[in-house]
């Protein structure tokens, strides 16, 4: 009896082992199958939840790749074949935007190490330059990117003028661009004071002294004194938060530089890019128009006030 029992137990054990082995095999198969599936990550749920559309090598999915991406959909799906030529656009608008992004990132990192107070501002710069890891590189990059951005803004405007791209229907976007250029200069100028060194202090002193001479609103400007302007209530006082460049001026420069102007500029940039698309995308290179093809204006309505449909 015990032998039979033993044999039965052995049989049961082999069966159990066999079953376990089979299950293990099946599990291994499944695991391998899942691992193989990972070789095509674009078919996983995780991937599809992120990217939403298939990225096959078809014209349709190339277009969708641009149009369905929140960052890329600023672009149209297709553009004029000659518009991608560097010689036409010089790429200055895009580079300006890229520099703005680079300045935002380096600027936010710099803000971690900077206090806009007379006691600490200059020391913070020394600390950045000598103790913060890569602090010097960070500050250098922020300054040189700012200078570069001014040059690229000017060259962008120069190119837009040379290709006549401000003409109808892009008149208004040119105006937005001029405002953005002014904001770029103001961003750079407000940043100049922040290290609180001789260079920035005197440059801002010279710059804001101009405001004294504002006609009507400055205490040294034409008709300013007659309107009751003094050093303590004129437009320069409003800019500096005082009659001299001091702690209030530093704080004002800081807030304009880090918060207010970047926000305002971002709004204008949004409108600028949106209008580029709405006004028909990049202006050219357009087919040339000949002198003989100019249509004579109709009627005595001033051109500037004429409804947009009329030539």
């Amino acid at each position: 009896m015990p032998e039979e029992n033993n044999q039965q137990a052995k049989k049961g054990l082999t069966a159990l082992l066999g079953e376990a082995q089979e299950k293990a095999k099946a599990l291994k198969e499944k695991a391998l199958e899942e691992a193989r599936a990972l070789q095509e990550p674009e078919k996983t749920q995780l991937y599809r939840s992120m990217f939403r559309v298939k990225h096959d090598d078809t014209p349709r999915s190339r277009a969708l790749g641009v149009l369905t991406n929140v960052f890329f959909h600023l672009h149209p799906a297709k553009i004029n074949r000659d518009a991608v030529r560097y010689s036409f656009t010089w790429g200055m608008g895009g580079i300006t935007f890229y520099l703005f992004l680079a300045l935002t990132i380096t600027g936010v990192l710099l803000m971690f190490y900077y206090h806009p107070t007379k006691v600490q501002a200059f020391r913070d710069i020394l600390y950045l330059e000598h103790d913060v890891p890569f602090g010097k590189l960070l500050r250098n990059m922020h300054r040189w990117a700012a200078h570069l951005m001014i040059i690229t803004v000017w060259l962008h405007m120069f190119r837009v003028f040379l290709t006549g791209s401000y003409k109808r229907p892009r008149e208004f976007n040119w105006c937005i661009g001029v405002i953005l250029m002014v904001l770029t200069l103001l961003l750079s100028f407000t940043g100049y004071l922040l290290p609180d060194d001789q260079l920035g202090f005197w440059a801002v002193t010279v710059g804001t002294n101009m405001a004294r001479a504002t006609p009507l609103l400055g205490h040294e400007g034409p008709f300013g004194p007659q309107l009751g302007m003094t050093p303590y209530n004129d437009v320069r006082f409003a800019l500096l938060g005082g009659s001299i460049v001091d702690s209030n001026a530093l704080l004002r420069a800081y807030i304009w530089h880090c918060v207010a102007i970047p926000l305002i500029a971002s709004v204008f940039m949004g409108v600028h890019f949106w209008r580029v698309r709405k006004d028909g995308g990049i202006s050219g290179p357009a087919p040339v128009m000949l002198e003989s093809e100019i249509k004579e204006p109709k009627g005595p309505v001033p051109v500037v006030l004429r409804p947009s449909g009329m030539q």
């Binding site: 006549g164 003409k167 087919p287 002198e291």
Partner: peptide, 9 residues
């Protein structure tokens, strides 16, 4: 001037 809209000239 309606000419020169979108090209260098």
């Amino acid at each position: 001037n309606p000419l020169g809209n979108g090209y260098y000239t």
